[in-house]
């Protein structure tokens, strides 16, 4: 049996606009993924803790508050500290292109802005997992 892609979708920080996160969660489910949705107002510690326990392939953050330059690096740093080296950190929100580039340079995956086709993001994540996953089902 093929191993399912597990993805954690979270909203860090204080912004309460979760429409985008929910749309993505539903799209990922419909694409056959197992989606762990943790809801609003998550701290980086909570997010990384959940990512470890759930053994996810992907952590996806939705940030519309403008705090992306703080939150993405904070989560990424914690992921590395805890040994989550084979997990993709990606996400979306209102993020200017230059910030996307800066975050990608730090090691964050591709980020998606408003108007993204959900399929585009899903394809990206599927490709990433098929290339980087270390444990394959025997």
């Amino acid at each position: 049996m093929e191993r399912k892609i597990r993805i954690l979708i979270a909203k860090p920080g204080l912004d309460g606009h979760d429409r985008g996160a929910k749309v993505m969660a539903a799209a990922c489910r419909d694409a056959g993924m197992e989606v762990i949705y943790t809801g609003l107002r998550q701290t980086p510690e909570m997010i990384v803790n959940a990512a470890i326990q759930e053994d996810v392939d992907i952590v996806a953050l939705s940030i519309l508050s403008g705090a992306h330059m703080t939150l993405f690096p904070a989560v990424l740093k914690l992921m590395k500290e805890k040994g989550l080296n084979d997990v993709l950190l990606t996400g979306g929100g209102i993020i200017p292109e230059e910030d996307m580039k800066a975050l990608e340079a730090l090691g964050v995956g591709k980020l998606f802005g408003p108007g993204t086709n959900t399929q585009e993001a899903i394809e990206y994540m599927k490709n990433w997992v098929s290339k980087h996953r270390t444990y394959k089902v025997v």
Binding site: A31, E34, V35, Y37, T38, A50
Partner: peptide, 10 residues
């Protein structure tokens, strides 16, 4: 789809 939305952690 075989997918799932696991929301108990909320």
């Amino acid at each position: 789809s075989g997918g799932a939305l696991l929301g108990d952690r909320i």
